[in-house]
Computed example of a mutant assay.
Amino acid sequence: MQPVDVKRGDGPVVLGLPHTGTYVPQDIRTRLNERGRALADTDWNIHKLYDGLLEGATTVRATFHRYVIDANRDPSGESLYPGQNTTGLVPLTDFDGEPIWNEAPSGGEVEHRRETWHAPYHAALWEELDRVRHRHGVAVLYDCHSIRSRIPFLFEGTLPDFNIGTNGGTTCAPAITAAVEEVCRAAQGYTSVVDGRFKGGWTTRHYGRPEEGLHAIQMELAQSAYMSEAPPWPYLHERADALRPHLAAILQRIERLALGGALT
């Protein structure tokens, strides 16, 4: 199993998909407990939801599950949200705070997983961003995520449908944030927030360098907006079909900004 799947496009937008993969090597799977083997914290169906929304977009998708190693965490292991409940580079618990391992990995094993899975994913992502930037003078990483709408261990209450992350406006041009926020606010029947509980993971923060022509924005969707939030996590076509036009509008607005010179 290759750690990353890349589909190249000729446009300025790169879609990152770090959490849709479900591959777990057998030697790692046997060490997960029953709860861990359920893989409940997958960004279920996100690749299907975004498929075909923006012609010419490049996609970079991790094939491995986040329990192997989380492609959206700092490789140093530093927490993204100090002082808040979260999961680490190799999670020891699931999003409900429950243990997922019969035998947790050692520090040496974490480093091996980083080299085998995490590093190749980011090497591929960087290669595509650099290629796109050389072609267009600018590249925009749109990092695609989803999560259950109610997880008391991670946040209070119910999550908005659209959670836009820019790490306090530092990872992309204000025009991108404004355009995405405008589409989300105009989407009737949906709720949205900018830099709420999810401000952008390590990927967004690491690659978002607007002064270098590299822009990054994270979209964390509440899974209730397009699927069932219970096993076997089915994709609900009616809900998804209602959501997809808004996501397409977001991506098209970002692409127009990039091609129109507004980001250079």
Rank of each mutant, 00 (worst) to 15 (best):
P3C: 03
D5I: 09
P12G: 13
G16E: 02
P18E: 00
P18H: 02
H19S: 10
T20M: 05
G21C: 11
G21W: 00
Y23T: 11
D27E: 15
I28C: 03
T30Q: 14
T30N: 10
R31S: 09
L32G: 07
R35D: 10
A38V: 10
A38C: 12
L39P: 06
L39E: 02
A40Y: 12
D41N: 10
D41K: 01
L49Y: 04
D51C: 09
G52N: 11
G52K: 13
L54F: 06
L54N: 06
E55W: 06
G56T: 09
A57Y: 01
T58F: 06
V60P: 02
R61W: 00
R61E: 14
A62N: 08
F64T: 03
Y67G: 00
D70T: 07
D70Y: 03
R73I: 08
D74P: 05
D74Y: 04
P75K: 05
E78M: 12
S79W: 12
S79Q: 14
S79K: 15
Y81F: 14
P82R: 07
G88K: 07
L89Q: 01
L89A: 00
L89I: 13
V90A: 02
V90L: 09
P91S: 12
L92H: 06
D94I: 11
F95E: 07
E98M: 13
E98P: 01
E98I: 13
P99S: 07
N102W: 07
A104W: 06
P105Y: 11
S106R: 13
V110G: 02
T116V: 11
P120M: 08
P120A: 12
P120Y: 05
H122N: 08
A124F: 13
A124K: 04
W126T: 03
E127Y: 11
E128K: 03
E128V: 00
V132I: 14
V132R: 02
V132Q: 03
H134Y: 10
R135D: 15
H136F: 10
V138S: 01
V138R: 00
Y142A: 09
D143N: 15
D143W: 04
I147G: 00
R148G: 13
L154S: 11
G157E: 11
L159W: 03
P160F: 00
P160I: 08
F162Q: 05
G165Y: 04
T166K: 02
T166M: 04
N167H: 13
G168M: 09
T170V: 13
T170N: 10
C172K: 02
A173T: 04
A178D: 15
A179H: 05
E181K: 13
E181F: 03
A186R: 14
A186P: 01
A187N: 05
G189K: 04
G189S: 12
T191I: 12
D195Q: 08
D195C: 08
D195L: 04
D195V: 05
G196Y: 07
R197K: 14
F198D: 00
W202C: 00
T203F: 00
R205P: 01
G208V: 01
A216G: 06
Q218V: 06
M219Q: 15
E220T: 03
E220Y: 06
L221D: 06
Q223C: 05
A225R: 02
A225G: 08
M227C: 10
S228A: 15
P232W: 08
W233G: 07
Y235W: 12
Y235C: 08
L236M: 13
H237P: 07
R239T: 04
D241S: 14
L247Y: 04
L247C: 05
I250G: 03
R253N: 12
G260Q: 12
A262F: 05
L263E: 10
T264S: 14
